[in-house]
Design a protein around this nucleic acid. Structure first.
Lengths: 223, 223
DNA sequence: TCAACAGGATTGTCTGACATTCTTGCGATC
DNA sequence: GATCGCAAGAATGTCAGACAATCCTGTTGA
């Protein structure tokens, strides 16, 4: 018997597509925090039936990307600073661990990928496209998390980061934040490339703490 | 205006009830890992319509408590040892942090609650009811997580622990595990009561590592 | 100005339907 | 006797439509 190729492409269901589209829309900031999502409108816009949409909404609710209050329907949660702080703290825990592990086990090939994503961010940082900044920075973390050797760590991290995408978008457009972020990321990369777990942890911790501070700043300048 | 009492009891929807019932059923081991959940059967057993049930299933899928493969439907995932290891590792990360924080900030009142739950576990450990052991032990952690000052830490932890309930049930019925677990939990309690964060971390780490080892043992004795 | 109310909008839930896909058992073939 | 293919049945994915309960809003009346 041939080795299981696992190539059976599982057909993407309407539900999956819907979840992906909505998640993407939320990430890109299409909905304001606190704004409500009206089922009939979403159905029309996405071209899906209400049952399918509602299944998708339940998935997003479980991911905490939306809130659903009985008889009021789904809405984009307005993250308080306390909640955001809590998320940043756990994110610190996870990213520090991931960076440390990654330093000890990343393959040369993946290391090159990491370097590539770092230069991609470098380029984005030089531009004024704050959306590109967020995306390329996210790529950089993704690679680290994907190479930490613990898929659960990666999964949990992804879930948390998704919830603060709002803050990341705003802080990345802060004057000087991208540049400072770039330097921090270079530190992380250097430590990982050197296989120095301890230094990687330290750099990762500093990076998260600065990101958190930047988020706070961007939040205080409420508009 | 009166202070917002937040007492408006939000009516429990059919969907919520269904999620709760199914989650409970999964925890109590009613479904074998790998077994499939047939929609029509669940609808009949729970007395809900298929759309409501499917919404509930999507919630559970997002929690990773069930898997849904397109055109094959929902099933209970059979956790591999690799995945379980990964979960235990992240759990260690979270519990250690929570215990450390808890030691520094728990209120006398909550400390009494923690003590109570410890004696409840003591009692369960002396009995032969392995389900009671798991539940009381879970209470003990819950209190620690609830008092670590970070609700996200608590939330993530709850999600992870839910996924290894299968292992917990089996290892808790292992000869001597409950007794050993009790001693480890006493250590944790002592450290927290003394406000010694460092010792609490150490004890929490040891506890998770032993739980992991016990889970491995119980798994190797596959039946 | 504020409170009660009516109407519309929205959600929660159900029934029923149908195409597509999977599963299983049976017969045909080697 | 074992394996293969196929057809019937079962299960899922998706939709349309319906209706009661609840929420929201603008108007009316005090």
């Amino acid at each position: 018997m041939l080795p299981d190729l696992n190539l059976r492409i599982s057909p993407r269901t309407v539900q999956q597509e819907t979840v992906d589209k909505l998640r993407q829309a939320i990430f890109s900031g299409l909905f304001q925090p606190g704004s409500r999502l009206v089922e009939s409108q979403l159905c029309a816009q996405l071209g899906v039936s209400r049952p399918s949409l509602r299944e998708a909404l339940r998935s997003l609710q479980a991911e905490r990307l939306i809130e659903i209050v009985p008889n009021r329907g789904p809405s984009i949660p307005a993250l308080s600073w306390e909640e955001a702080t809590a998320i940043y703290e756990v994110r610190e825990l996870l990213e520090v661990e991931a960076a440390g592990r990654c330093a000890a086990r990343i393959s040369p090939e993946q290391l090159r990928e990491l370097e590539k994503s770092l230069s991609a961010f470098e380029q984005a940082a030089a531009s004024n496209d704050s959306f590109a900044r967020v995306m390329t920075a996210a790529d950089f973390y993704s690679i680290i998390l994907a190479n930490c050797g613990n898929p659960i760590l990666e999964e949990v991290h992804r879930g948390l980061v998704a919830r603060i995408s709002f803050f990341r978008g705003r802080s990345m457009s802060l004057e000087g934040r991208a540049q400072s972020s770039l330097e921090e990321m270079r530190e992380i990369f250097k430590a990982i490339a050197a296989g120095d777990g301890k230094a990687a942890r330290k750099a990762a911790r500093r990076h998260v703490l600065k990101a958190k501070a930047a988020a706070k700043t961007s939040m205080d300048r409420e508009d």
